[in-house]
Design a protein around this nucleic acid. Sequence first.
DNA 1: ATAGGGTTAG
Length: 565
Amino acid sequence: MRAELVSQRPRETLSLFLRMRRRDGVFCDSFSLSLVVQACGRLMDGDNGRTVHAQGIKIGFESDLFVQTALIEMYAKLGSVEISKRILDDLEEPDLVSFNVLLAEYVRIGEIQLARDLFDKMLERDLVSWNTMIHGYATLGDVMEARKLFDDARERDVVSWSSMIGAYARTRQSNEALKLFHEMQLANVVPDNITMVSVLAACGDIGALGMGKMIHEYIKRTRIEVDMKLGTSLVDMYAKCGDIDSSLRVFNQMDRRDVLTWSSAILGLANHGSGQAALQFFSEMIAEGIEPDDMAFVGVLSACSHMGLVDEGRTYFTLMSDVYGIAPKMEHYGCMVDILARAGRLQEARELIRKMPFAPDAVVWRALLGGCRVYKESDLAEEATVNLLELEPNADGNYVLLSNIYTQEKKWDKVIHMRKMMRNVTIEKVPGSSSIEVDNAVHEFIAGDRSHPRTEEIYQMLSEMLEKLKAAGYKPLTSLVSHDLEERQKEIALAHHSEKLAIAFGLVSTNPRTPLRIVKNLRICDDCHLVIKLISKIYDREIIVRDRNRFHHFLGGSCTCKEYW
DNA sequence: ATAGGGTTAG
């Protein structure tokens, strides 16, 4: 019986042992006993686990430290961590491993305080103890505490760095994740495939394609093993950075793919407006015998929503629960409401919200509202917005939406009432920001930004752009600006939207015909969409904008979203 | 021989 058999094939370990036991005269030693105990834990097989434990006592191996340590892990995995604790307390000479096992189990079940108490009590701690705690705080949401331990640790290995980078990546503090990766290299700690998964997630999050490509090159150069998870991360990173061709290239090169790999590609295609291809991929995945999960259906439904495929959307929504037994979650209802609302089937969308088995969240109401705006359904719009405000009373954008509706309807008393409401809450403004990567450095702009070192050139380029745009017949869509401003001021406010600044910077800082890739944190506004279409033609540039929802691929005066976003 | 780090989101 070999040790790696336990972690890779616990079921075989157990059945081998049971077969051995049935044959008379074959007795196990403490070594194989510890492995079997461990296998029972990982299989969460309490019946066999307790039997094996009793047998161990009978043959007198219960005091063996390896067996005891395996028992600590097993009982914790069976849900009886108190027993694990008692076993550890009763050990006459516990070693570091037995402590670390209980520490890891506390973390696994979310008992970070128990883990901390144990950690503080331990007389001796090694890297594994520290890393377990760093990971514990990181996964349980306290990234600051994780960082404190990371900073306090006497030594750090690839696991410590990967845990911390992963913590930042998961909480979408992507710049911090990349900064730490840089520091890791300065500290001469060699990253492995696990590190790279988190680093690529951070690149994808902020749309840093250049950085992502560098990481990919590094992986190839240093021959880091591209396993299924790392391959999936590459597929996802390229798709999120707007390079769907590279994403699919990596996908095609992979020899094994799981549901996550497929889902990443499906979602990538959907976000790039290739809805048909996304649906095709979904069929291929099924044909290959891979069971779709709830995320795969988010991808498929989101493809339907971006393409306006109402009937297909309904089909998949039903297929999900009827054939695959997956109960639709909030995300799926969100997609479905979005599909119906975009198609103008607002009453059906409202009806679906009513039939949801749980209370709709803000995203669902916003999806309904989006349709109401397009199809001018003001009563339903008001209902959606009131519900939205109840869920998100602090987001300034929601008040802008409501104010637009009342203004359209000339319901001035309601405007006044709304302003009163606003006085009682703290309004949080999420500033629109856009970033562009030039020479592997990410430059971020907010509306009216003057902080960039090349501000003069940027604003000069902006004026030039506006002149050319107007010469081409462009009229600013000032009706979108809700503030009580003069017409001229409205134009200025529009002209200084963050994505326009990022594009102006892109135009002055890159060679002609270099594609510009912009990442925006909010949804792109109608005026910017119009402007970028024209710019792509006037300046002969391919411009790829990732907004909160999807990709817009501008070329020669048109956009791949076909005005459907 | 036993212990620690990984991706997807409307």
